[in-house]
Design a protein around this nucleic acid. Structure first.
Lengths: 242, 242
DNA sequence: GGATCGTTTCGGCGCACGCCGAACTTTGCC
DNA sequence: GGCAAAGTTCGGCGTGCGCCGAAACGATCC
C-alpha cells in the first residue's frame, strides 16, 4: 500500500507536470499550430498566439524544457517544432479527445465543410481531413488495411506500398508502429498514421500528388494526385471536392 | 487564415481546459488511483490524495464536470469512477508518456521488480504488468496477434478467443477497437487493450485465473491460472514469478 | 560603425486557484 | 428523536503564474 502510494505519487507529479504544459491556452495554441509538422520561429508563434514576444519566449522555453518541443537556433532566429512523432501523436489524441462531443460533430462538419482545412490537411507528418479519411477508407475497403480486429496493414497492404515505391521495411524502425489510427478532428474518425502514414504523406508531396496552400497546414490535391488516387485506390475525385 | 485561427483558438481553449484538469497533482493522483477500474468514494480519494474532504469534493466536482469522471450517488456516499474506457486510455497514455525516460526504465524495473504491482495488475479493465506483457508476447509469438504491421488480432486470434468461450463478435461494439496497444508503465512495452483485452481480463477473473490482492490494483495468479496460461499460451510459470 | 530586428531577461502587476476550517445538509444507525 | 458520519458550501488566506514593458543581448544588413 505504501509502496504503491509513493509510486503513484511520483507518477502523479510527472503527469501533472506534463499536462500543466498544455493547460495554458497560449501554450496550447502554440502546440496546435506546430502540429502542421513544420518549424516556426518564436516571433511567428508569438503573433499567432497573440502575446508579446517576451511572453512567448518564456512559454516556449517551458515547452522545450518539458520535452514537448525541440528548438534549433539559426542566426537570430529560434526555430521550434514538435519534439518527435510520439509527442505529436499525444497532442493529437488530446485535441481529438477534447474536441466537441459527438452530438455537435455534424454541425461542426457542416459549418467547416467548405474550408480548405477540412478538405485536406497534414496532421503532423501524415494526411488528414477528408483526404486522409478517404485514403484510409479506400485502403480498408480494398483489404490493404485491417480495421475489424485492430489497426494493421495486411500483406496486400505491404505489397501496395512496395508497388508505390515506398520501402516500409527499410524505414527507420524505432518504437513507432508501422500503422496506427489517429483520430481526425473534423471527421471524428480514425485515419492512417504511423510510419506508413508518414511515408505515404511524404510520397504524396514528392510525387506531386498534393501541395501546400498558404502557410498553414491546408493542402490542395493536384490533377495528378486525383488521377493517382483513382487509379491506385479507386477514390473518385468527387469524394474530395465536396 | 482567420478561419483557421479562430478554429485553432477554440481547439486550444478546449485542449487547455482538458489538460488543466490533470495539471493539478491532487487531481492527477485521484485519476491515477481510479485507473484500477473500480469506483472509490470521495472520502477514500481525499485520504489517498492527502487533502481535506472539502478540497477533494471540489476537485472531484471539477473532474466530473469536465467529463473525466462519472459519479454515482448511493445514500451518503458519492462513488466516482473513470467516465469510460476512452478516458482511461487517454490517462494511461499520458501517464506512460510522462513516465521516466527510456534510460531509467531498467533501474525502475529493477527497483520495482519485487513488488506485486509490477508482477501483475489491472490497467483499468485489462491485464498489465509482467502478466499483461507475457500474455501479449505469447499471443504475438503464436500468431494470434499481429504487431509487425500495426496492432490487430489475426483470424487465429479470433478463434483462440472463441475457444476460450469469449464471444468478441457479440461484444457491445462502440467505437472502441477490438484490439489496441496500451503502453505499460513498468515494462515500457505495449500490452493488449481494447475490447479483447477487457474481455480476457473479465474471463480471467470469472474463471478464477487470478484474484485481486488488497484494495489496490495488484493481482495474484492462481494455480489454475498458471496451468491455463501454460496450456493455452505456452507461458511458463517462471516468467510470472520472477 | 551604426541601425534594425529577433530574442531574452528582469521587475512588477494582478488574477486565478488550491488549500483549509467552520458551518450546514443529508443519510444512516441506535 | 438523537447522534455520528459523509459530503458540500463558503469565506479567507497564500502562492503561483501569466502578462506586459523596459532594457540588454546578439545577429544581420547597410
Amino acid at each position: 500500500m505504501l509502496g504503491a502510494m509513493t509510486r503513484t505519487d511520483h507518477s502523479a507529479s510527472r503527469l501533472s507536470a506534463l499536462t500543466a504544459l498544455l493547460a495554458d491556452e497560449t501554450r496550447a495554441t502554440m502546440c496546435l499550430a506546430l502540429l502542421d509538422g513544420r518549424a516556426w520561429t518564436g516571433g511567428e508563434l508569438a503573433r499567432h498566439a497573440g502575446v508579446a514576444p517576451s511572453t512567448a519566449s518564456e512559454h516556449l522555453s517551458q515547452l522545450v524544457a518539458g520535452g514537448l518541443l525541440a528548438e534549433e537556433r539559426q542566426g537570430r532566429h529560434r526555430y521550434l517544432r514538435i519534439a518527435d512523432p510520439a509527442t505529436a501523436q499525444l497532442i493529437e489524441d488530446l485535441a481529438a479527445f477534447a474536441g466537441p462531443p459527438a452530438g455537435t460533430a455534424s454541425s461542426l462538419r457542416a459549418r467547416s465543410a467548405s474550408t480548405a482545412l477540412a478538405r485536406a490537411r497534414t496532421c503532423y507528418d501524415h494526411l488528414a481531413g477528408r483526404l486522409g479519411i478517404a485514403i484510409t477508407d479506400a485502403l480498408t475497403k480494398r483489404g490493404l488495411l485491417a480495421q475489424e480486429t485492430g489497426f494493421a496493414l495486411t500483406d496486400q497492404g505491404l505489397r501496395w506500398f512496395a508497388e508505390l515505391g515506398v520501402d516500409l521495411a527499410g524505414a527507420p524502425r524505432g518504437r513507432r508502429p508501422l500503422a496506427r489510427p489517429c483520430l481526425d478532428w473534423t471527421e471524428r474518425r480514425p485515419h492512417l498514421s504511423g510510419i506508413s502514414g508518414a511515408a505515404l504523406c511524404a510520397h504524396a508531396f514528392q510525387a506531386g500528388w498534393c501541395t501546400r496552400i498558404g502557410t498553414q497546414r491546408a493542402l490542395a490535391v493536384t490533377d495528378l494526385g486525383l488521377r493517382e488516387l483513382r487509379a491506385r485506390l479507386g477514390i473518385e475525385p468527387d469524394a474530395l471536392s465536396v
